[in-house]
Design a protein around this nucleic acid. Structure first.
Lengths: 155, 155
DNA sequence: AAAGAACCGTTGTACTATACAACTGAAAGG
DNA sequence: CCTTTCAGTTGTATAGTACAACGGTTCTTT
């Protein structure tokens, strides 16, 4: 590849903008279709908690650019469903260490499988090469936007 | 490029899944930051209306996979803001033909500019070639999910 | 050590986006 | 005609989110 005449940057930017917007609009509904038992955000948070083997609510908020109240409520929901546990941290009584329960791990595995199946199906006609490139582009795109994470200009 | 050993499909699918989810989670907030005057969905609908030089609410619902009630309320908002007009269709009294007003066109132009600037900035380090490829992948990805809705202008 | 600042999480309130169902009004087809 | 179908609105409910105010905790500074 390479070498050929590319469309101008403008055009590509326009397409990227439009298509990402279109995707964002559909994402929630699509996620709900794939795993109705576990809402999109809960899924993400739960996955993060499980991956880290215990983390704090504040970490989640920082990582996902969510307000702590949002996280708090999401966690309340997850706890109500019995998917996470809050353990008081022995060294700091302000924090709660979050852990995925057995049930949480299980439902997460199911959701993950369903999601993977959905993506598998949707992208079944793609070559491994195209998948790799697409994945790389997405990574690159997202990384560009999270650079501003560490510093929250607080007035 | 090409030629090299690709990561297995599984891995790429996983990355795509994770990154698209991450993107979706941030999209709304990001859009609000870029053009706070015009909510994300309203922006999209207004852009569509303007582009088509008049379309029906039902078309919007079909195209964006939204419930007609959702579209109805979005349009109510846009009308209240003076950005769209509803004109009764002479041939069919059930339908309203939607048009962007002068103000709508103007605010849309501003929002579009802001968005483009944001994308421009975010993707400034990308080569034209990479942009073109990324755009193509996004198109391909989105098309796979929207096969079931060809755009039908009114008969 | 006491006072104050910084931090963690919850709760009250409000708003956007969304769906589904019930409804009104208008066309279209027997 | 009368029924069915279509276009759009409205009532109700839910998820996700933010911001602001608050109650405890811990850290810092005097």
């Amino acid at each position: 590849m390479t070498g050929g005449a590319q469309p101008p940057r403008e055009t590509s930017l326009d397409v990227i903008q439009r298509e990402l917007t279109a995707f964002a609009r559909r994402a929630r509904a699509a996620a709900a279709r794939v795993h109705p038992e576990l809402p999109l955000v809960s899924y993400t948070l739960l996955a993060h908690i499980e991956e880290r083997h215990g983390c704090r609510a504040t970490d989640l908020a920082a990582h996902y650019l969510l307000d702590k109240s949002t996280v708090s409520r999401q966690l309340a929901g997850l706890e109500k469903l019995g998917f996470v546990e809050r353990r008081p941290a022995p060294d700091d009584h302000r924090v709660q260490v979050l852990h995925a329960t057995e049930a949480g791990t299980k439902v997460l595995a199911t959701a993950r499988t369903n999601r993977q199946a959905a993506y598998q199906e949707r992208l079944k006609d793609w070559s491994a090469e195209d998948l790799a490139h697409f994945a790389a582009y997405l990574l690159r795109y997202n990384d560009a936007g999270t650079n501003d994470l560490p510093d929250r200009p607080s007035p």
